[in-house]
């Protein structure tokens, strides 16, 4: 590992100030000299591999603001402080009762040990595990812009079929983010330019020609909170994750579904898809296909076809298209049948 300076700011504003300098707005946070660390489950790993190369780390665990560590539930929203650990949020009774999708997506992620360390703010920013991104001797447009993509013609079983570009097919592996994008969540961000609130759907950027730019964040911005509105569909919601083994594995395909039903008819539906896309993925076409329809096997299948209409497979990941569709069909029908 490269040597680095380690500092522990005690407030958000102090952290922002320490990270701010003239250039901070012009490089992606993942390439900045100064980077934030919270749970460290992702960044420390990448620093050991020489992929993360900060000269200076600002540890957010010492930030004093109590709201950063709180889960607050009101009638119309759940608000998570960004430093809340994944494990704590997964076990929170209000979260589980009011919106099972959120709790499931956290519970099915990583391992117990990792969930106890990783923060929600850090979790949504976790970087891909593309094998070629992780090993610095391979070309990778995300790690070294312009160097090429070794995954395109390489071992790409786990790679994305949606949201890909000619530069990058790396999967966004997170689970919680699929729930957040489905549920119209927002993130509160604090930086040198002040505070702002951003739709979660706008936080991540498609790879396009610049896969090295992964989010809308500047290098001196910190996510301070994540807010999830509670709506008629929140209670009838579910996260289905399909993977090679029963636990501690990333999704080959997953579906985050929330349904507001009137009898057998869909009043409103929210769908996120994981394991298949380069960024957290909202399946808008599938939602549109179900709106106002009777939710049966055929309708679910039609929605799944719509969700993957633009999918682009590579040599080893073509199975993700039928698997992704079946995962969505199963998730829709299981969510429909939930006793709420």
């Amino acid at each position: 590992m490269r040597p680095f300076v380690y500092e522990r700011p005690t407030s958000v504003s102090a952290a922002v100030a320490m990270a701010s300098h003239a250039g901070a707005g012009h490089v992606p946070p993942t390439a900045a000299d100064t980077q934030f660390i919270a749970g460290g489950t992702n960044l420390a790993d990448y620093m050991k591999l020489g992929v993360g190369r900060p000269d200076r780390l600002l540890d957010l665990n010492t930030l004093a603001e109590p709201a950063l560590r709180k889960i607050r539930t009101s009638d119309d929203a759940i608000r998570f402080g960004a430093l809340v650990r994944m494990g704590e949020a997964a076990d929170n009774d209000d979260v589980r009762r009011r919106c099972p999708l959120l709790a499931d997506s956290l519970k099915l992620a990583a391992s117990g040990q990792l969930r106890n360390m990783a923060t929600l703010g850090g979790n949504v920013l976790q970087r891909t595990r593309c094998e070629y991104f992780r090993e610095t001797s391979w070309p990778c447009n995300k790690r070294e812009p312009g160097s090429g993509c070794a995954a395109m013609e390489g071992v790409n079983r786990q790679h994305a079929v949606l949201g890909t570009s000619d530069s990058c097919i790396a999967t966004y592996h997170g689970d919680f983010a699929q729930a957040l994008i489905a549920l119209d969540a927002t993130v509160d961000i604090e930086g040198r330019r002040g505070k702002r609130t951003l739709a979660f759907a706008k936080l991540h950027r498609l790879p396009g020609e610049t896969p090295n730019i992964e989010t809308d964040l500047a290098a001196d911005e910190i996510i301070t909170a994540i807010e999830v509105p509670l709506r008629p569909w929140s209670g009838r919601s579910r996260y289905l994750k399909i993977r090679d083994r029963e636990s501690y594995a990333f999704a080959l395909a997953s579906a985050a579904v929330a349904l507001d039903m009137e009898g057998q008819t869909v009043r409103s539906v929210r769908i996120g898809l994981g394991g298949v896309a380069t960024v957290p993925w909202r399946a808008v076409a599938a939602e549109d296909a179900l709106q106002g329809k009777v939710l049966d096997e055929a309708a679910a299948q039609k929605a799944a076809d719509a969700a993957f209409a633009d999918a682009r497979p590579r040599e080893h990941n073509a199975f993700k298209i039928p698997l992704g569709k079946r995962t969505l069909v199963r998730a829709l029908l299981e969510t429909r049948d939930m006793k709420v």
Binding site: R129, E131, Y132, E135, A150, E153, G154, V155, R157, Q158, D244, R245, E246, S247, Y248, A249
Partner: peptide, 30 residues
Amino acid sequence: ALHEATEIDRRAARYVNRDLQDYLVPVNAD
């Protein structure tokens, strides 16, 4: 039967899943 395999990049004759996250073995839940 169900999990273990070292993946080889056939162009470069190099192993790519060189850790226990990507080289799968059964966990307790399996």
